[in-house]
């Protein structure tokens, strides 16, 4: 596939896919919480841009609504809430020590290769752009999980969780021009409720263990103590 032979829309989507993937890597290696939240907001705005672009060039008007919802939820509301939480906990200057960053990045890169490998069978029946778009979305999902595994702060877990949602949303826009409207509204509602619940949880966790370090949530396990 030669990118110059594609139409402008495809080229734009492919570039945006690359940028979305890049933001995921940036988040993965980020040890400062405020910067992590900033990159997350960047990823959200790239998504809103993708949705807007798809809405414009495919003349698919309900995607405008999705774009606006993404902008409000993932670029404004959730980053604002997380930022407030970090500042309240006075953890904005903390640097989280990530064990072996090189290995982490290599792990992330291999997840991306893995995503391409998993989705490769669809190449026979779909346009080539689809493989790229879907594989990038899947790798954003997997990188979000890796982010949650490697970071210890609850705020970072929420960012990972929401970036998984971002990956799914990207797949939905690019592969299928958005899900049916009912479903999309439902998903947005779920994300909103989840964000509010996370806010409530921060409060509970803070009052119960006096920190947002999830490694301290270790009372329940199968091993006899």
């Amino acid at each position: 596939m030669n990118i110059e032979q594609q139409d402008l829309y495809t080229q734009a989507i492919l570039s945006l896919a690359a940028l979305v993937g890049l933001t995921s890597f940036l988040m993965l290696g980020q040890s400062r919480l405020l910067r992590l939240i900033f990159v997350f907001a960047m990823q959200g705005s790239l998504l809103a841009l993708t949705a807007g672009l798809a809405a414009y060039s495919q003349a698919n008007h309900h995607l405008y609504i999705s774009a606006v919802m993404t902008l409000m939820l993932k670029v404004i509301f959730i980053p604002w809430m997380l930022r407030r939480e970090v500042i309240q906990m006075n953890t904005q200057r903390d640097i989280e020590t990530l064990k072996n960053k090189t290995l982490l990045m290599l792990g992330g890169a291999s997840l991306m290769v893995f995503s391409y490998w998993v989705l490769h069978p669809i190449v026979h029946t779909s346009p080539a752009i689809m493989l790229n778009a879907l594989a990038v979305s899947l790798s954003v999902v997997l990188l979000g999980m890796l982010l949650m595994i490697t970071h210890r702060q609850a705020v970072a877990h929420v960012v990972g969780f929401m970036s998984i949602e971002n990956g799914l949303f990207f797949a939905a826009i690019v592969a299928t021009n958005g899900m049916p409207m009912v479903v999309e509204l439902g998903i947005a509602f779920d994300v909103l409720v989840a964000a509010v619940l996370f806010g409530i949880f921060f409060f509970h966790i803070r009052t119960s263990i006096d920190s947002l370090d999830v490694d301290k949530l270790n009372r329940l396990n199968e091993v006899d103590k």
Partner: peptide, 28 residues
């Protein structure tokens, strides 16, 4: 109970996200 709920939320949330990816592929 807060630990249990956090675990439930994160694990089921991430888990069910995989099902959404499956649903998107189905829709595709």
């Amino acid at each position: 109970s807060i630990e249990a709920a956090w675990k439930y939320f994160i694990l089921c949330g991430v888990g069910i996200a995989q099902a959404l990816f499956g649903t998107i592929l189905l829709y595709y």
